[in-house]
Design a protein around this nucleic acid. Structure first.
Lengths: 345, 345
DNA sequence: AGACAAAATACAATCGATTGCAACAATAAA
DNA sequence: TTTATTGTTGCAATCGATTGTATTTTGTCT
């Protein structure tokens, strides 16, 4: 407390070289365990490096090697959709991506600001610093992602397989997911089924497509007044969902586009004395831990997030490697993992 | 799909200078909006930069300026404590820190691997790349954090105010938090109160201290068989908690060290047909969204995570700025925000 | 010892931006 | 016109590592 502790000064390769009585080339080679360096010299240098707490200047190294081994992860975040990270889906995804990246010897930089244009993003420091970018979600900037992909640094996107797409995407079959959830409710006997999710987001639009398709197949008309697009911001969402549930007493099912939404809906239903699932049944999406903590446990569409994160990283690595060989790579290799329906309790 | 789209080649300052018919010094100054550059020259350069999609090489810039403007965030993660990010507390913290950093013009690199020693961390690329590090939690490496702090790059830690501490810390009053939660249960009439949390973690040890202190004041003996340290890993934790609840039928309250733990406990209690809170009352910690979705809503100790994130960043910025003026700064400025008790329903 | 190959090390250019200082141009004052 | 002053721009060193090539050292064989 208040004590002055002198910071240890960091040392560079030249100083290490001087101490070892060799040139910095030799130090560099020794540290990278090059086979041309004499074994005893190598040992001496390593010992000195250790003793003096040598830490390499990574920036200089990156400059020389023309790569930083950093990948940027963008948690997509539209201006209009409100802020604050609270959906645990993102945490799981970040965790899986960072772990996968670590396995390939890469580090992760996080970006979390609303994004409107490709140029805006290219002007950010993380973009300039990183070798490539992984986007979680397409938000509403599909076209801008196309533009971004035409530039030198590779991008990979978690999201939907949209038409006119020039970037690589990893994702699951959202149409099928939405359809399965809806069919599950239909099988439970539900007939007036609401849909909670902002269809301005491509993935959710596809889930909605699955929802309508399931309804049509059951000869049920889609009631546009049962479609709700709750904002991301928690309190606003709570309010809007609560109002909806108050005013639509005749619904008997809700297809939600995330487990968090489902939890909110169930909480609101309880608040109004509506029994779940006997009076209104609810499905979630993502199969997160929260769903298993609710009573009754949530029926939800499972996306294998870990596999998704791994795929994203794998694709990114392929693009980075490809770039070093040939300058332009563009092949369609959408990874589709089939959504599965999981029944709680 | 399969179409070959040539990537746009990136351009450097020299090329931009050539096109503008000036030297790269002038380009550099123009891009940083230096006042010495002629207005028309500046406009011409900016126009060209825009037209040719100029993106500065951030690595070269960092090397020259001797700073990357990147801060590393370590989600503390002990080898023995299991893996996988699922507690939304971390997401909230990451979100708050990244947002605060952005406001100070910094970016965030994420680190998420088990950490045992300071030297091990100093050897990582993120450490070398970043200007400083923020740790979320002290894990079990308090001593190693002390070592790390003695080196050139600043660190700030979210955690407990431990004795013999040479690094800056931001946190809340964990003793008080644990005490308040316990007293709340005592006030509800609970007498056999269990504690769920791994006291090997300093913060949780303090909460436990608050717990025992509250019990003592109520003249209740602390029963060591009611202390449970669930692992981080979800399934293992579920199992252990379930076994505990099965075997300790006589408890009437549980103080949990996180809302996730509380949710798990409540879920398990329900599973065994035990009423919450009438038969067993439960408190959480962190005041996360999940607590508000449970029925009945969770009583929890609130930590102002946003303020915490801001403080962490603010301290880091102070250390970085201080370093530029004087070489060693060490003053005690622990930020203690009083925990508050929040009653759901 | 001398010649030659092999092993180990040093030299110097390079990555792309920044910036102190020198140089030049334009304008004003003498 | 000359000189001083101010406004712009260019030169070249610098940040700290990597690496192709040149050079020195070491060891082997005759």
């Amino acid at each position: 407390m208040g004590k002055k502790i002198p910071k240890q000064q960091s040392i560079d390769m030249q100083q290490l070289a001087d101490m070892a009585g060799v040139s910095k080339s030799t130090v560099s080679r020794a540290l990278s365990d090059s086979s041309v360096v004499n074994k005893r010299t190598k040992e001496k240098i390593l010992e000195l490096a250790n003793k003096h707490h040598f830490v390499m200047n990574e920036t200089a190294r990156s400059l020389r090697l023309q790569r930083s081994n950093m990948i940027c992860l963008v948690l997509m975040h539209d201006v209009e959709l409100g802020a604050h990270l609270s959906d645990p889906f993102f945490l799981r995804m970040v965790g899986c991506v960072v772990d996968s990246l670590a396995k390939s010897g890469h580090d992760l930089a996080l970006y979390h600001k609303p994004l409107e244009t490709a140029d805006e993003f290219r002007a950010t420091r993380v973009y300039r610093q990183c070798d490539g970018t992984i986007f979680i979600g397409q938000g509403m900037i599909h076209e801008e992602l196309n533009k971004l992909a035409s530039h030198e640094k590779p991008i990979v996107v978690w999201g939907a397989d949209l038409p006119e797409r020039n970037y690589r995407v990893v994702g699951t079959d959202n149409i099928m997911g939405g359809k399965q959830a809806t069919q599950h409710l239909l099988n439970q006997g539900c007939r007036r089924i609401a849909f909670f999710g902002d269809v301005r987001k491509p993935e959710l639009a596809l889930r909605h497509e699955g929802y309508t398709s399931a309804l049509r197949e059951a000869d049920i008309e889609v009631d546009s007044s049962l479609q709700l697009a709750p904002p991301m911001e928690r309190h606003a969402a709570d309010q809007i969902i609560d109002n909806f549930i108050k005013s639509k007493k005749d619904i008997d099912g809700i297809v939600c586009c995330s487990d968090m939404l489902a939890a909110t809906a169930i909480s609101s239903l309880h608040e109004h004395g509506i029994e779940v699932p006997s009076q209104v049944a609810v499905t979630g999406y993502d199969d997160l831990e929260i769903g298993t903590r609710l009573r009754p446990a949530l029926t939800t569409v499972s996306q294998n997030i870990q596999a998704g994160g791994e795929q994203l990283v794998q694709k990114m690595m392929a693009l980075l490697a490809g770039k070093q060989i040939r300058d332009s790579i563009r092949e369609s290799s959408l990874v589709v993992r089939k959504s599965s329906l999981r029944d709680g309790k």
